[in-house]
């Protein structure tokens, strides 16, 4: 299985997800921003289980 190697603060790197779009007709930055906002929360879930729960 290919590793995605997410960095701190992400779980599925934007660079990986970006390639999954067939086409982007509008503003890519909007997609990126929204993607990364939730990435942080999901990252926190994984690491919160390790450190807090």
């Amino acid at each position: 299985m290919e590793k995605l190697k997410p960095k701190p603060g992400e779980i599925i790197p934007w660079e990986v997800h970006e390639k999954e779009y067939e086409n982007i007709l509008g503003d890519k930055e909007i997609l990126k921003q929204e993607w990364q906002n939730l990435e942080v929360i999901a990252f926190r879930f994984i690491w919160a289980i390790l450190t807090d729960f």
Binding site: M1, L4, K5, I11, F43, I46, W47, I49, L50
Partner: peptide, 22 residues
């Protein structure tokens, strides 16, 4: 090599009664 993936794919299936690995 990849701490977050290790946690999600290997560690969590071991610590959780419900989670399974890939």
């Amino acid at each position: 090599e990849s701490p977050t993936e290790f946690l999600a794919n290997v560690w969590m299936p071991r610590i959780s009664k419900y989670v399974v690995g890939p």
